[in-house]
Amino acid sequence: MTRWLFLLILVLTVGAAIVYGYLGGFTQPTVAIITTKAPVFLAGKAFRGSVRDEAFGPMFRQVKEAKDNGQLRGDLANIYYNNPEKARDTVQAFVGLVVADTVSQQLPAGYRYRTFAAGQRVIQARTTASYLVAPNKLYPAIADAAQQQKLQLQQVYLERFPEQGESEVLAAVK
């Protein structure tokens, strides 16, 4: 009986490692300190509250549905106004899509624009990993880079998850 249990655990562990690798979990992110050249416009909805709030999870699905239904065009993105890794209870976020500008699309009801300003000094972390594992790779890379470079983070983060290309997080520094 113990042998079968051991084999089952081994098969599940190997299977989980294969899935994790397929999602890009073993890829290392690239990190750079840059100054943003152009503003990034987002169309979406603001949220402030508990990460366990029943309204928070569905916001992501609503934005994805607006994209899938053709109501909005752009890449999935979020702006966090506090560190989502450390915000155990309260999160301030803007969940939406990166859009080209603020005039070419009509916003669905309840949606607003937000801007991640140009000219900011940021730590940029990128990876080809799936959006399912990317945040767990990018935020630690940003924290490590900030510590190594002795930079202080402003606690403003832009996450971008394009359908094609690299996922990235921009973290504003002081």
Rank of each mutant, 00 (worst) to 15 (best):
M1G: 12
T2I: 15
R3A: 14
F6D: 00
L12Q: 05
T13M: 10
A17E: 01
Y20A: 10
Y20V: 03
Y20E: 02
G21F: 15
F26Y: 14
T30V: 06
T30Q: 12
I33N: 05
T36I: 01
T36S: 03
P39V: 07
P39F: 07
V40L: 06
F41Y: 13
L42F: 10
L42H: 07
G44Q: 05
K45N: 05
A46Q: 04
F47W: 03
R61A: 15
R61E: 08
K64H: 11
K64A: 13
A66L: 11
K67T: 03
D68S: 14
Q71G: 08
D75I: 14
N78R: 02
Y80N: 01
N82C: 07
N82P: 10
P84R: 08
R88W: 08
D89R: 14
D89I: 14
V95K: 04
L97H: 09
D101I: 00
V103W: 02
P108I: 01
A109M: 02
A109W: 01
A109K: 13
A118Q: 08
A118L: 08
R121D: 00
I123C: 05
A125R: 09
A125S: 08
A125Y: 10
T127S: 13
T128Y: 11
L132N: 04
V133N: 03
N136E: 07
N136L: 15
N136R: 14
Q147C: 01
L153T: 00
L153N: 00
Q155D: 07
V156H: 15
E159M: 15
F161V: 04
S167A: 14
A172Q: 09
